[in-house]
């Protein structure tokens, strides 16, 4: 038996299990914090986050508007009270 010939066939280049390149690239992305394109699932998640953010911004705007209305009402009531005092002073 030609052992060197057997060794050439036995000790040949061997492919790793399927998905090897993907696993390496995932580790690279994690270590270097690089976002990767992941297709529809990732796009849906991003859309959900945007929707939540917009909803949150909408709530922020609503609350701010409410605060401004309350401030305006407070100022208006102060002016009304002042006007009433003036009227009482004139009527005496």
């Amino acid at each position: 038996m030609d052992i060197e010939s057997e060794l050439s066939h036995l000790l040949r280049r061997t492919e790793p299990p399927p998905g090897f390149a993907e696993r390496v690239l995932t580790r690279i992305d994690v270590e270097h914090r690089r976002p990767r394109r992941r297709g529809p699932a990732r796009a849906l998640a991003a859309a959900a986050l945007i929707a939540i953010a917009l909803g949150g911004w909408g709530l922020h705007v609503t609350l701010r508007a409410r605060d401004e209305v309350m401030t305006a009402m407070r100022i208006a009531s102060q002016k009304v009270a002042h006007a009433q005092r003036e009227v009482r002073g004139v009527s005496r």
Binding site: R13, E15, P16, F20
Partner: peptide, 8 residues
């Protein structure tokens, strides 16, 4: 291209 070399 080179995974066969390295893994091998």
């Amino acid at each position: 291209d080179y995974q066969g070399v390295v893994f091998g």
